[in-house]
C-alpha cells in the first residue's frame, strides 16, 4: 500500500468508527419495546452532566492543573459569559461577551 492509500484507508476507518458510535444507541433503541422509566430519567440528566464536564475543565484547568485565582482570566470571562447566557439565552452574545472579557483582560494585564 502506498502512503496515500494508507492515509485514505485510515480516514475511511475512522469515519465508519465514529458513525457507528453515534448510531449505536439511536439504532438499538428501536428494539426496546419501551424505555424503562429509570433509564429515561438518567438519560435526561446527560446534557447537564456532559456539557458541564466539557465547560468546567476548559475554564478552570490551565497547563494541566486547576487554577482558581484571578490570574486565570478565563474564570472572569466565563463568569461574565454565564451571566449573559442565563439572562439572554443568546449563544452569540454569550460567546461575544466571553471572548471580549478574556481579550480585554489580556490587554490590561
Amino acid at each position: 500500500m502506498t502512503a496515500a492509500t494508507e492515509v485514505w484507508a485510515i480516514v475511511v476507518a475512522v469515519g465508519v468508527g465514529t458513525f457507528c458510535i453515534r448510531f449505536s444507541f439511536i439504532y438499538l433503541f428501536e428494539y426496546l419495546s419501551e424505555v424503562p422509566d429509570g433509564l429515561e430519567r438518567a438519560l435526561r440528566l446527560v446534557p447537564a452532566a456532559v456539557l458541564s464536564a466539557l465547560v468546567v475543565p476548559a475554564v478552570v484547568v490551565v497547563d494541566g492543573s486547576p487554577a482558581l485565582s484571578l490570574d486565570n482570566g478565563r474564570l472572569l470571562a466565563a463568569g461574565a459569559a454565564a451571566v449573559v447566557a442565563w439572562r439572554t439565552e443568546n449563544i452569540l452574545a454569550t460567546i461575544a461577551v466571553g471572548m471580549a472579557v478574556l481579550l480585554g483582560l489580556r490587554l490590561v494585564v
Binding site: 456539557l51 475554564v59 478565563r74 454565564a82 447566557a85 466571553g98 471572548m99
Partner: peptide, 15 residues
C-alpha cells in the same frame, strides 16, 4: 476559548 463558551451557553438551559 469560543468552544467552551458555546457549551456554556447550551449548559444553562439544560439545567
Amino acid at each position: 476559548f469560543a468552544v467552551p463558551l458555546t457549551f456554556l451557553a447550551l449548559l444553562l438551559p439544560a439545567v
